[in-house]
């Protein structure tokens, strides 16, 4: 007794009674077999296209790859390590005063802009003295062979370039943290181990001191999760107001901007910084700090 395809189709469309038809059991088995086969195929397809995110190493955490024009200039993309710059400057200096966008590659930095003294060229001009030494000049548009070594200090993606500032040496002096760079930056500042600069001569604007903002609680969406204590004070000291408001948090009143962990994981709201540069989202206890009542 053979099971034919027309029989299977008839069964699927309800034209064949499974109980009375002799071939019913066989047809049912065939359907189950095909359903399982489809699930396996879909799973395999998913496994081939899906990407498993590799957790970056502490020295690579916060690395931004800039590749707007490098390829055309036959240079390696720029591998910008946030860790060193954030140990020296507040977020506001670069993301407000120097107008660096919050998204990698969105600024569209060009070598000629740097040469004119904008973006990286504000400090990287070969003249500026920082910590008793000259800050190396940014790569110019027309570079010669002798400039290659200097250019490669930033255009280093995929190359084995020895960096001037050694991460392991730097991090060994810092208070430890489990994730991200493995450094508790907040604690490091409190301990006076880092003193991020908040003003650049000729670039930053002299502003009156910022009013200290009160920290506040945020209710988690998932029941049983500890409450979130948002450190408004810390965020304003490093960012000012305009980095977050209204671009990232447009809601006027507390609680009006509705977002959840999925949004944050997609790089929105807190996820603009946390997960890329600031401590990562797997470090739940850093935000969900208040004990459950």
């Amino acid at each position: 007794m053979y099971v034919t395809w027309p029989d299977t189709c008839l069964l699927l469309f309800g034209k064949l009674d499974l109980k009375t038809h002799k071939k019913g059991n066989r047809i049912m088995k065939r359907i189950i077999f095909f359903v399982i086969l489809m699930f396996i195929a879909a799973g395999m397809a998913q496994a081939q296209t899906g990407e498993k995110k590799k957790r970056p190493r502490p020295n690579e955490y916060g690395r931004v790859v800039i590749n707007n024009y490098s390829k055309n200039a036959q240079m390696a993309p720029v591998a910008f390590d946030h860790w060193f710059h954030r140990s020296q400057f507040t977020c506001r200096v670069c993301h407000v005063d120097l107008a660096f966008a919050m998204k990698a590659g969105a600024t569209g930095i060009r070598a000629e802009d740097n040469a004119k003294g904008y973006y990286c060229g504000t400090c990287h001009n070969g003249k500026k003295i920082f910590e008793d030494r000259k800050v190396f000049a940014a790569c110019s548009k027309d570079f010669s062979l002798k400039d290659v070594q200097r250019c490669e200090r930033c255009h280093s993606m995929g190359k084995e370039i020895k960096k001037e500032h050694d991460f392991s040496e730097f991090s060994s002096r810092m208070p430890k943290e489990r994730f991200g760079n493995g450094i508790n930056w907040e604690k490091a500042e409190k301990m006076g181990l880092i003193k991020p600069v908040d003003f650049l001569d000729g670039i930053s604007i002299k502003r009156p001191g910022l009013k200290i903002q009160k920290d506040f609680d945020l209710d988690p969406k998932v029941e049983g999760m500890p409450k979130i204590v948002f450190s408004h004070k810390k965020h304003t000291v490093w960012n000012g107001c305009e980095v977050c408001h209204p671009e990232i948090f447009a809601g006027i009143k507390k609680g009006t901007t509705k977002y959840g962990m999925i949004d944050i994981m997609q790089g929105k709201y807190c996820g603009v910084c946390h997960g890329f540069v600031a401590f990562p989202l797997i470090d739940c206890q850093r935000c969900h700090t208040e004990p459950v009542e």
Binding site: I205, K206, R207, P208, L210, K211, G240, C241
Partner: peptide, 13 residues
């Protein structure tokens, strides 16, 4: 520009 943007830190008041 400086005159305007220097007021951001006191915008609340």
């Amino acid at each position: 520009f400086e005159d305007i943007c220097s007021r951001t830190s006191e915008a609340e008041s």
